[in-house]
């Protein structure tokens, strides 16, 4: 074996403070404030929906990259298949909103279970390459099954069913703001759910695996089970996000399941801050808003993402969230100093 390949991650200075100085209550309140203010602040409710939908996908990605240390290019598989499954179930079986969303989450979770079970048989660069190969395969399969997926044209006329119980319509979701309401409620639940997962025995073990997998195995954890479960949870959340995205657009494009979608989700995760749930919201928000504002003025704005990606790895490993945290700490330090001086 090439010893270079098995060397554990060195110099990984992801924010230790995130683990020691967590203020979950404060960040949860901040999250709620953002979710409520979002449709008032951004130009349109549709854009607000898009932000929260991608923030969900980023939550899923963060569970793998931020908390388990797994760089997966497979997220597009879960996102895309969630979109397709929900859309097809609604079109062909006329299922309701919640059934469609559940099916999407189940499809994303099951596929992630499969992808995870295969990919974690290898580590390091070979793991990454496997997720990459599987995403490419999923893309070409979706392309080939054009009777189902619409191929290159995408799957058209995806409905957005109302919130209904037993055939009785409670809310119509046709207006963007009403749909935002649904997305926001789901996002808040997923965020709180993710918080619970991270604070559980399972979540604490994921951190241990990220920190030092050999040691985690040596103290008795079958690390494969943890990684596969992390994949399944991540896939379910991402599949749900994909379904909501299809409902938002009334359309499921082939690009949902393409490698660049994985890259986009990864970039949002990293720029927002790996290992921070609030960072997921920051990353998705920043990039979706930037894309919306800049793409009309300057179509090449993606260049900035490239620069930002390099900058985060080189100078600001904690991403935007890490930056905010250190800013907060510096201000707190300065405040203490003035108090002492006074």
């Amino acid at each position: 074996m090439n010893p270079k390949l098995t060397t554990p991650a060195r110099g990984d200075s992801r924010p230790a403070n995130a683990i020691f100085r967590r203020r979950p209550a404060a960040t949860t309140l901040a999250m709620l404030a953002v979710v409520i203010a979002l449709p008032l602040v951004v130009p349109s409710a549709t854009l607000a929906c898009e932000i929260l939908i991608f923030a969900m996908a980023v939550l899923g990605c963060n569970l793998l990259l931020g908390y388990t240390g797994l760089l997966s290019f497979g997220q597009a598989i879960f996102f895309g298949s969630g979109a397709y499954v929900a859309a097809l179930a609604m079109i062909h079986w006329q299922v309701g909103l919640f059934t469609a969303l559940l099916l999407a989450a189940a499809a994303g979770g099951l596929l992630a279970l499969l992808v995870g079970a295969l990919a974690i048989r290898r580590t390091g660069i070979y793991f990454v390459m496997l997720t990459l190969a599987l995403t490419q395969m999923a893309y070409f399969i979706a392309y080939t099954l054009s009777d189902w997926t619409g191929g290159d044209n995408g799957l058209l006329d995806v409905p957005r069913p109302p919130v209904a119980i037993g055939g009785f319509t409670l809310f119509d979701l046709e207006s963007p703001l009403a749909f935002y309401g649904l997305v926001a409620v789901l996002f808040v639940f997923l965020y709180l759910g993710a918080r619970r997962v991270i604070d559980s025995a399972f979540g604490s073990t994921l951190l241990a695996i990220r920190e030092n997998e050999a040691r985690a195995a040596a103290v008795g954890y079958d690390t494969r089970h943890f990684k596969i479960l992390a994949f399944a949870l991540s896939g379910a959340v991402t599949g749900l996000a994909g379904a909501l995205y299809a409902m938002l657009l009334n359309f499921a494009p082939l690009s949902n399941i393409e490698l660049p979608m994985s890259e986009q989700i990864l970039i949002m995760t990293i720029i927002g801050g790996t290992g921070s749930l609030f960072g997921s919201l920051l990353g998705a928000g920043t990039i979706v808003i930037l894309g919306d504002l800049l793409s009309a003025l300057w179509p090449r704005w993606m260049l900035l993402l490239g620069v930002a990606l390099i900058a985060v790895v080189m100078f600001m490993r904690g991403g935007l969230w890490g930056g905010l945290e250190s800013l907060g700490r510096r201000r707190a330090g300065a405040a203490r100093k003035t108090q002492e001086d006074a």
């Binding site: 993606m302 260049l303 993402l305 490239g306 620069v307 930002a308 990606l309 390099i310 790895v313």
Partner: peptide, 9 residues
């Protein structure tokens, strides 16, 4: 991640 950034640029 860094080389992905370079590729984008």
């Amino acid at each position: 991640l860094v080389t992905l950034g370079i590729a984008l640029i």
